Computed example of a mutant assay.
Amino acid sequence: MDIYLGIIFRTTVIYLVILILFRMMGKREVGELSILDLVVSIMIGDIAVLSFEDLEKPFLRQMIPMLVLAFIQILLAFISLKSVRFRNIVDGTPQIIINQGKIDEKAMRKQRYNFDDLLTQLREQGINDLNDVQFAILESSGKLSVIKNNQDKRSKIDETPFPLIVDGKIQESNLNKIGKNHFWLRHQLKKLGETKINEISICGYIDGEFYIDKNETKK
């Protein structure tokens, strides 16, 4: 009888602890979990199972690894918020698979992404004709984001689906994709009255128009 009571007690406590830990680690959809999120989730699950295999071991000692993993995950998430470079290393960066209607085979090989994957994800979004796609971006979560061609089929060379500034940092690679550099960006922002790039949370540029959101905490 004591064994069954012990199992019930441990199950209840572990359930509550895991629920609290995952709430602390932040909200993400399953399909948007980063590699770190996935690894930590699997490890916490394995540790939880091990706690039932030997009821003779102190329960608190078996809970410590779960708490340590949660602490590491929260710490790394905090570092990711502060460092774009670290975030790119951990989560990866989006890749343009279709650019202005042209498939980038090099980017596909780099991501080990084949044409079957591409066509499947396009069909899931109701797209059967590649000519209808202006941009297709493989997100770091593995999801394919698609920007369709406009009905008038205009080619917008100045459009970019990626931000030019993130967390106060200029994204040089995204500027290169539209044939611009940081001198051009600074000049355009200066005309808009924006001289402090470190105060900009995100800056997007599409169809010749800028979208700017400023970080109010840095004022």
Rank of each mutant, 00 (worst) to 15 (best):
S83A: 06
A107Q: 09
Q100M: 08
D117Q: 10
Q151R: 01
V166N: 00
L16D: 08
P65I: 03
F59R: 15
I14S: 03
I44T: 11
R109E: 15
Q188M: 15
Q125F: 05
G126Y: 06
M43H: 05
I89Q: 00
I74S: 14
D46V: 00
D167G: 10
E194W: 06
S34E: 04
K190C: 02
A70P: 02
H187V: 11
E159H: 02
K57T: 05
K148A: 09
I64F: 12
S140G: 13
G6A: 04
L119P: 00
V166M: 00
Y15K: 05
S140C: 13
E139I: 00
M108F: 10
I42G: 03
N114E: 14
R85T: 12
A77E: 09
L138S: 00
K214F: 06
Y4F: 02
F9S: 14
K191W: 08
L67F: 14
L60R: 05
E172F: 02
V133G: 05
L122H: 08
I89L: 00
G126M: 10
V90K: 11
S145P: 02
S201V: 02
T12R: 01
L67V: 12
Y211A: 07
I64V: 05
K106Y: 12
I44M: 10
L50A: 11
S140L: 08
I200K: 06
E216Q: 11
Q62H: 15
L192H: 09
P94C: 13
D46E: 10
K190I: 11
F78G: 08
L122E: 00
K148P: 04
K82D: 02
Q188L: 08
L118N: 07
K102P: 07
Y211S: 12
I127L: 00
F86C: 09
K214D: 05
E32K: 06
E105F: 05
S201P: 01
P161H: 05
K196T: 04
K177W: 03
E139S: 06
Q188H: 14
D158K: 13
I165R: 02
G31P: 03
Q73T: 13
I72L: 04
K27T: 01
L144K: 00
N149D: 13
F135Q: 09
R61S: 15
E216C: 10
I103P: 03
N149V: 14
Y211R: 07
Q73G: 11
E29T: 14
F86L: 15
E124Q: 08
G92L: 12
F52Q: 11
A48F: 13
M108Q: 13
N149C: 07
L122Y: 11
